[in-house]
Design a protein around this nucleic acid. Structure first.
Length: 262
DNA sequence: ATGGCGAATGCAATTCGA
């Protein structure tokens, strides 16, 4: 089974790229982030014609996630509150950032972590609090029986210095600060492993390049889009790759797709 | 250090992303 994740930075703008990519790359499911569209305006028909079932959780202008799947998903849940039954969590579902469903016995969790603006800002604190809610969410799901987990998405965190084009002077940078890394490591301690690192240990592999200052041309990137698997799926994993081809196209997303096979 | 670019909104200029 192949599962891909791709922050498309507007599905309406990137629609042709996603179609072309799907035509050239067979996947069982594609997790999309930053769709930036309300559900009724998501171009569902386009992808249904290609043979996908389409599950969306979007909003106007910002955020938004979706899963395209070759087969119907079971137990689809949108938002945190469908899993974490706590009224204090409701505020986190104002931003549409998480959707999950089960495909062939694997629970796919597709998420878009807040970017956090700058260290110490209100948005930074929101990011850290969001990650705490995510831990509760995953804890609840892991209590459910017998599904491998594939937690995919744009995490907006580079876990290690080698995941950044220039590790110097990044200690005090959004996406690589200690608190963000600790928050993510705390989540991974539930029993999730970065499948990309099963296959590649060296640095200089990135999934996002800033539009500004020709980040891609100079390969000044960050590896912030991840796929985390529970141990059994991790053992079964056959490959995990980043496809930088779509990043080379005219008017690209600033992120590249990441694909895992197991 | 700052700003660079791109998308959305809504129709000019601002906000947001990372």
């Amino acid at each position: 089974m192949k599962i891909a994740t791709w922050n498309v930075n507007s599905i309406r703008v990137r629609q042709p790229h996603v179609i072309e990519w799907l035509n050239n790359n067979y996947v069982d499911a594609l997790c999309l982030q930053e769709t930036k569209v309300v559900d009724e305006n998501f171009p569902k028909n386009t992808f249904e014609k290609l043979g996908y079932y389409v599950y969306v959780y979007g909003q106007k202008a910002y955020n938004g996630v979706a899963i395209l799947s070759r087969y119907p998903l079971e137990n689809v849940n949108i938002g945190f509150t469908s899993i974490v039954k706590d009224s204090l969590v409701e505020e986190f579902d104002k931003q549409k950032r998480i959707i999950t469903g089960i495909l062939n016995g694997v629970r796919i969790i597709n998420l878009y972590v807040p970017n956090g603006a700058s260290i110490g800002s209100e948005k930074y604190n929101y990011k850290l609090r969001w990650l705490k809610v995510l831990k509760r969410y995953l804890t609840e799901i892991l209590d459910q029986p017998n599904h491998g987990l594939c937690v995919c998405g744009d995490f907006n965190i580079a876990l290690e210095d080698k995941d950044i084009y220039d590790s110097k002077s990044k200690d005090n940078h959004i996406m690589s600060s200690q608190l963000e890394r600790e928050a993510l490591k705390d989540i991974l301690s539930l029993g999730l492993k970065d499948v990309f690192r099963k296959f590649i240990s060296e640095g200089n592999y990135f999934s996002w390049w800033d539009y500004r200052a020709s980040g891609f041309k100079h390969n000044r990137g960050w590896r912030i889009d991840h796929q985390y698997l529970t141990p059994e799926l991790y053992r079964k994993a056959l490959s995990c790759t980043i496809d930088i081809e779509p990043r080379k196209l005219v008017r690209p997303s600033d992120h590249a797709p990441v694909i895992v096979e197991f």
